[in-house]
Design a protein around this nucleic acid. Structure first.
Lengths: 351, 351
DNA sequence: TTGAAAGCGCTACCAC
DNA sequence: GTGGTAGCGCTTTCAA
């Protein structure tokens, strides 16, 4: 739909005011949906806006308003390295807050505790522009999300979706596809037949379940590989090491390990005691997984870039707060595959 | 280094003027390095700027200046699908030019013709803020780049670096590592021993040479695979199909094909006549390669995201024009590996 | 060589 | 309900 005035100078609020035969102040009122304007006037102004193809200059508006976008990242309070990478990415974006007029802060929330998450959401000040949530969805969380949005706070789900909540966006990967990707690499990388061990964090976490599901879909195409029940490591390195040692000692036929969660330090420890021909696929790029990839302990990493996640969340929260559009192509989080050959050289997490 | 006034309101030009005991206009003069200010005054102002930790509000400056960033993308005038994806990405960014105050345009340049590229650079109007170049580096190009920068035009090299030119940035991937990545996938995906065929575009293109070099480094680790001389397809599907048909007919021992350039349509045609157990690794995500990946003709794609390349080039050109900082983590172009399982679902190039 | 003042496009306050 | 008007932080005439 070509506007009649694509010809050059884009229309300003002044143009709209003139066209509608009202004052600047009135145009501003209808533009910002403020009360106290007669319906007839509203219509006149909206007509003019449509006619002229007016689009508001956010930079000028933010300048006049001295606007500062305040947003909170509710992240589980664990020592999980991936979460640490998210925290670092938030901190990095907070630097130069004045430049972007955006101040993101991290709010730690008790991990694996939906009620704590819901409470944290309710405790958010209404002055906040947006919030990014990383946690499991329960009815309590869903209701808290609804209340937050009613208070005018934009909400995005981070890493793990809240599908039945009315969040504005989901920022993260499709975990079924991530699991499928891991499965494909496992199927093509392994040469011998035998057992494949799957490590998960918690059977309750939606993202872990989805990864397992996708992994199994693809593994079904490789009859030479037999996948056992998930080992629930709870992201705890010691627990992972102990449970895995037991499984590995049960026989010499383990040819692959799919580590779909955290706790990789324990996995690495257990593998040191093994003959080295086990194909290992893990998730996320952290100092631990990166070192394991580089020294050949791990064969591939399935990664969602923490910096990208955080930047995308911020852009989407800002767009939601402004009621503005966004670039879907830019906000699509990719499922990255990292081999030793293509892992980023100096990532944020190894300074 | 913590500034004394991290405490809240960031200093404005007015604060600087007051601190230096001069007028706003004078501060503006030294800030923008305009002539006609006494050295002593300059020093006073710069002191005040440093003291206060002043950082200019680009948004306000652009508003006052009614600034529009104009930038050109000099792209080879071919029907290469990857270049088409770049063109599309530029067009997409041009939409909403008024919102970003940035208008990128594509300037087609005769392909494989360094002199044409150099001439195109020289023909750029000095009013331009920046230019992104995709092409081979020769002395003529290098000199043209220098002249452009002397005329105040920021320059980034796109996809293929211009290492000995004084370009402001390189936006693209490390092609040696990209080749290594392809090599690793080839080595781990193939099961039988035999020959591996390498398809290249031109032996002159720096990026293709580097890919081949990286590929060979890794292939040396796989003694069961024997790599022959590159087939120079010149990105021409018919030529590729013909040359490849000849090679494939020479024996039944071809187990892999590494297509390091364009012309994949020809490769696909040639493969249709073959028994299907050839591992194929190609570059870039286009409608052709995507279809081949999805139907199993190709096994993996090594990709640099066109949207990311273009957005990054624009951000860097804008930063160079403003003399502003940028986020290195955001501008690092990743070497993406796409399998059928993790290829983006609805990319820009298949609408 | 320096300063005063009028804007850029928009918001917000205060009158009428 | 509606309109004037003084800014937001910066740039840019035009005078002095």
């Amino acid at each position: 739909m070509a506007r009649p005035d694509d010809t050059g100078a884009k229309p300003t609020l002044n143009d709209v005011a003139r066209a509608a035969g009202v004052s600047l102040a009135t145009v501003d009122r209808v533009l910002n949906a403020r009360a106290g304007v007669r319906p007839a006037t509203i219509a006149r102004v909206q007509n003019a806006i449509a006619e002229l193809g007016y689009v508001r200059d956010t930079a000028a508006a933010n300048l006049a308003r001295r606007r500062l976008y305040e947003m909170a990242f509710l992240l589980p309070d664990t020592d999980n390295e991936f979460v640490a990478a998210l925290r670092d990415a938030v901190a990095e974006q907070a630097t130069g807050a004045s430049v972007h007029r955006t101040r993101p802060t991290v709010v730690p929330v008790a991990p694996f505790d939906p009620q704590a998450l819901a409470d944290a959401v309710d405790a958010l000040p209404a002055s906040l522009d947006g919030v990014a949530l990383f946690g499991p969805e329960t009815p309590a969380v869903r209701d808290a999300v609804r209340r937050a949005r009613e208070r005018g706070i934009a909400v995005v789900a981070l890493v793990s979706d809240l599908p039945s909540s009315e969040r504005d966006h989901f920022v993260g990967i499709d975990n079924v596809r991530a699991g499928r990707t891991a499965g494909r690499l496992m199927g093509r990388f392994t040469r011998r037949s035998g057992r494949v061990v799957v490590l998960t964090g918690s059977r309750l976490a939606r993202d872990h379940l989805e990864r397992r599901q996708g992994f199994d879909q693809v593994m079904a195409e490789y009859p030479h590989l037999e996948v056992g029940a998930s080992i629930e490591g709870r992201d705890d390195a010691n627990r992972v090491a102990a449970m895995l040692a037991r499984v590995l000692s049960e026989g010499n036929d383990v040819v692959g390990v799919y580590s779909s969660a955290a706790g990789n330090a324990g996995l690495i420890r257990a593998l040191r005691t093994m003959p080295h021909d086990v194909t290992v696929i893990a998730h996320e790029l952290t100092p631990t997984t990166r070192a394991a990839l580089m020294d050949g302990t791990f064969d591939a990493l399935i990664v969602q870039d923490a910096g990208h996640l955080v930047r995308s969340a911020i852009r989407l929260l800002r767009a939601s707060a402004d009621g503005a559009a966004f670039d879907p192509g830019q906000e699509r989080i990719r499922i990255d595959i990292h081999l030793r050959e293509n892992v980023p050289l100096s990532p944020e997490d190894t300074p």
